[in-house]
Amino acid sequence: MKTGFCLVVLMVVCSAPAHAHHVLGRPSYSLNEDSTTPPSMQVETQIGDYYVTYMVFPAFPSPNQPGRVNLYASRIDNGAPFDGEVAFKVRDDSLFNDDEELLGVQLPDDNVFRQGFEFREAGNFIVRAEFEAGGEPYRIDFPLQIGEPARWGPLGLTVAAIMLALITVNLVQRKRLVSDKIRSGRQDRAG
């Protein structure tokens, strides 16, 4: 019972909303390898007064491969670009992890904030961009994945496992279940 609840809690935490993102440079209906444009990952968010676009080159960098984050910020109301400085921080994307590392602080170059990186290990990371505009602090988290993406998320796996267990038990025990149900139903009422 306890493990069941832990599992559910985990699932709820893990299913925190992902940002809208997609891989550019490839036809959207097929993410296969034969494309001449180097793919890049783009995430767009809307925060306070700003649209913030975040890009990763290449889309899924491998360990020990230099990559780059580009950040664009412009006002929602009139499209004017943000011209202050942006700090980039990174942390491991696991539960209860607060170890943040500063990647660098960047000034805009032609309205783009560029930040290079190189990771030694594969894994899922969170890149946090921080800046201040109009006296308000802005803090935005973006995903960064080093290495191959997982095909099935924890949620899909759990749901699939539960459905499989349900169906298997029902198929294997088909005959016995009616009498079992009657027995437990009677105990249920007696107790």
Partner: peptide, 11 residues
């Protein structure tokens, strides 16, 4: 004192 801005998506 200062509320950190909330993120959203453009849709």
């Amino acid at each position: 004192a200062r509320v950190v801005q909330k993120t959203g998506i453009r849709y």
